[in-house]
Write a protein that binds this DNA or RNA. Structure first.
Lengths: 335, 335
DNA sequence: TGACAGGCTGCATACGTAGTCATAGAGTGC
DNA sequence: GCACTCTATGACTACGTATGCAGCCTGTCA
């Protein structure tokens, strides 16, 4: 009736209340099929009366599993926030929890990895294209499993799940060529990011097939502002390319606004593409042509690698194709 | 040299290796001032040799604290994702972790609360304006502490940290009046959300001071799409208001695009305001006038209530003022 | 040299649960 | 009616750490 008891109620207390042993109480909550129905009811009633809640800490210590998955993700990124949400939802459906390690710079990764080990997590999702190789190597271990998410650099070092960055970039490049681009530029986020390198490689290769050169311009960060500023550099040069490919959606949105602020019309003067398929890319003010990552699929694949003991973990690589979404940033209505 | 040992290394193993007792090893890692320097070094070397990592699960079981804080937040919301990032960062600085409970609908909240109890978290941040009162009541307990974040409905039930929604809305309303609005409308997110109600109340009151009526229109959701669709309803009526106040930034951005798609100029024909101060609101394509929430301050206040034992928890309410940020959605350059 | 203080360390135990093993009882077949 | 199987339950212990208590050793002072 009134508030919580001062001390935490344990399975022993419930056992005493129900007139059974602690072991039986434990079984009711972890493997009820082993307990007679009548006894179960008795125990559950006693538990309800005392307000008993099983202690996950003690369970974890005994069972050697925490039902918690860690995720190491960069702090300020639209894309990762979407990924995180997807992970959290799926895990909740399986009765598992998500422990978040958000980091600002690479140094934080180090301490996050320490915590991961201390907390004996059931698995870890390593999500960031800028984690250094030495960190990746350190994470090589069979237990708990570590999966690299959208981080091609981990190839061969860790099990890896990623969208097909190269094919996606190629598709986007072919698309702008089909839309009439004869000159182009690729504005990357951070040159050391492995996703960036692969996307550029795919785009440049496809454009080369059409004898179109594709200079690389580094924005220096992953966010909108970096794109906005990079646009100014494009406008500085004499003449501008027919098309600008952004290394990510967030960057591309900044590019669009930067180019428009500079007096260019998108898509009238310049075509723009992104990469990721963020919700914002679909906003009417932008309607960006982009490569949509199948986040749900990527997340499911990742969790499958983490938990399906069947999966031979060795050097799994799941490369999932994305989908080109055509928006009006590459639609020239002049024909 | 080679991989990890098959079995987990424990403090007992380290003790054997270093030729001391397990107790001494434990002390080296939890209260080193009680151990002679020479012994410490010896133990640390042994630990390093074996690759020992303290087990946080066992420590939590013994010490009755987990150093983990839970956060219950809605899954798909730009605003909450920003808040989450801020929490994660601050906690990491204090050596604590964030356990994420992302929920889609109110039913998920129920199960999240169960998990919170099981995991014996050190604290819980309850962040969502749509958590039902019955859930809030259930969370009333001194230990672990639960703090309601930006959820005015919790007033009197739980310690509460929130931006001053009413004053903020009033400021925005005064602002649009100063910019010449003579008619207005408030487009709310979800009518049952307590933040929504208070923001509307503040706006309506301020407008009433100027003999301006302020009809309430419910968008039905918190996101961009809801705002985009609500714009159509505004356009349907004969004539449109001078100004539209959005219940949140995300909604307001949808409103802007919806209004523009409908042929209106923002701010030429309609002024638009938001609420929250999202990064996207500052994007050049929108440059939305909004009320910026001091997220860092709110987060710090929340953690202070959670952890400063000094704080008398009873019915704390921290109502922090926001800052009006004037963008070009309320700037009429025609004077 | 003896008494005593103080700093280190080891012993033993508790945290709350899960799972192993043993046992009691009920049911089955001959 | 006996041997057997099978189910339900209890006693006990381990998971890995933190900590109170006691004991040891060294150093100091009279």
């Amino acid at each position: 009736m009134d508030g919580q008891p001062a001390a935490r109620v344990t399975s022993h207390d419930v056992a005493a209340e129900a007139g059974v042993s602690q072991a039986t109480v434990a079984r009711v909550f972890s493997s009820p099929e082993k307990v007679a129905l009548a006894t179960q009811e008795q125990v559950r009633e006693a538990a309800a009366r005392l307000g008993y809640v099983p202690n996950a800490i003690a369970r974890s210590l005994k069972s050697q599993r925490t039902d918690v998955v860690g995720a190491v993700v960069p702090a300020r990124s639209e894309y990762w926030q979407n990924v995180l949400t997807a992970f959290s939802r799926r895990l909740a459906e399986q009765g598992k929890q998500l422990l978040l390690f958000s980091f600002v710079d690479a140094d934080h990764v180090e301490s996050a990895l320490d915590s991961v080990e201390q907390y004996r997590l059931d698995g870890l999702v390593l999500a960031s294209s800028t984690i250094r190789l030495e960190h990746l190597v350190r994470m090589q271990r069979p237990n708990p499993r570590v999966v690299a998410f959208n981080q091609p650099a981990a190839s061969g070092l860790l099990p890896l799940v990623t969208v097909d960055n190269e094919a996606g970039a190629r598709d986007l490049a072919e698309h702008i060529v089909a839309r009439g681009a004869r000159t182009a530029a690729f504005v990357g986020t951070v040159a050391t990011a492995s996703t960036d390198q692969i996307r550029y490689r795919g785009a440049a290769a496809a454009l080369a097939d059409h004898q179109i050169a594709c200079p690389y311009l580094e924005a220096g960060a992953f966010n909108y502002d970096a794109g906005y500023k990079a646009a100014a550099r494009i406008l500085d040069g004499d003449g501008h390319p027919d098309a600008v490919m952004g290394g990510s959606d967030e960057l591309a949105l900044g590019l669009i606004d930067g180019l428009r602020t500079g007096g260019l019309d998108v898509p009238g003067d310049v075509l723009v593409t992104g990469f990721d398929g963020l919700p914002q890319a679909s906003w009417a003010g932008y309607d960006l042509t982009t490569l949509v990552q199948p986040i749900e699929v990527l997340v499911d694949e990742t969790l499958a690698i983490l938990f399906d003991s069947a999966a031979a973990v060795a050097n799994i690589e799941r490369i999932v194709p994305g989908t080109l979404r055509e928006g009006k940033t590459t639609r020239r209505d002049r024909g």
